[in-house]
């Protein structure tokens, strides 16, 4: 487990944090909602509106870390026939749009595809790596090897309940950044970002992580500004997905997502450090 391999997302974070003096805005959208092409258009729109790194969700039947908003979108995506290969296709289509693309996936989908085969095909499509909410480093031997072989980032999560030993283990295994869950819970919009987030970021850095980004419950520009004061990146999902869900029709989706993304992009630019 080394961080010597060049990190696609790490390079982008260095540019923003060291170069521009601001945190990154990381935006989540699932593939296949409202349709496969519709999700690709929405991703492009959010990048054009100021999202720095894309988290592309692979729809799964049993998303235990997701709250009601994201559940609704991925259930619809699956009902409309979205396949694992569609994710790789969307990665390919949006890879040149100016932001590195991380795929967020529950682990069984990658296991089924084959860990090595998925890593190879994701790298070939231009993807930057994976965020794995139900895979802990302890179970990730195959993925650690495959991601090294294909130069992919691997983003593992830490939570307020993580012990110092586990923070260290996770920091060592991660490449790109460590995803700090701001609160104990699932994805969704919250009126306040967990008070333990700032401490968790500090503890994760102390455990050896170079970059730590915060997600879960961040939905508004002022929250992005506040979290961005201490985190290297601010991860927003449900607020963007809600914009898509509430768009009057498929054609209106990208503009709705762009409006939310633009506000958040303003937020991270106010997070001077």
């Amino acid at each position: 487990m080394t961080t010597q391999t060049a990190s696609p997302v790490g390079a982008r974070l260095d540019e923003l944090v060291d170069g521009e003096g601001r945190p990154a805005l990381i935006g989540y959208l699932p593939v296949g909602y409202p349709s496969v092409p519709g999700s690709a258009a929405a991703v492009r729109a959010m990048v054009d509106a100021g999202v720095d790194v894309v988290e592309l969700g692979m729809p799964y039947t049993d998303p235990v870390m997701d709250g009601p908003v994201i559940q609704r979108a991925v259930e619809a995506a699956l009902q409309r026939g979205t396949r694992v290969r569609d994710t790789l296709r969307v990665v390919e289509q949006v890879a040149g749009c100016g932001a590195p693309i991380l795929v967020m996936t529950y682990w069984n989908l990658v296991l089924r595809y084959g860990v090595e085969a998925y890593a190879r095909d994701l790298a070939a499509a231009g993807g930057a790596g994976l965020i794995t909410p139900d895979l802990i480093p302890d179970e990730a031997a195959d993925w650690l090897e495959a991601s090294d072989r294909h130069g992919l980032d691997r983003v593992f999560l830490v939570a307020p309940s993580s012990t110092p030993e586990r923070l260290e283990l996770t920091a060592r295994a991660s490449r790109g950044f460590v995803y700090a869950a701001s609160t104990m819970g699932v994805t969704g919009e919250r009126t306040t970002v967990g008070a333990r987030a700032e401490q968790l970021v500090a503890d994760t850095r102390a455990a050896g992580a170079h970059r730590v980004c915060v997600g879960l419950g961040v939905s508004r520009p002022e929250q992005a500004a506040q979290v961005g004061k201490y985190a290297d990146g601010v991860i927003v999902g449900s607020a963007l997905v809600r914009a898509l869900l509430e768009a009057p029709d498929e054609a209106g989706g990208p503009a709705a997502v762009a409006a939310v993304a633009a506000g958040l992009a303003q937020g991270v630019r106010e997070a001077h450090r």
């Binding site: 682990w107 909410p133 139900d134 802990i136 179970e139 999560l157 309940s161 993580s162 586990r166 869950a181």
Partner: peptide, 12 residues
């Protein structure tokens, strides 16, 4: 077997 869970549950 194993533990394919979110990190948040590992401590519990």
């Amino acid at each position: 077997g194993g533990r394919f869970v979110p990190e948040a549950l590992v401590a519990a």
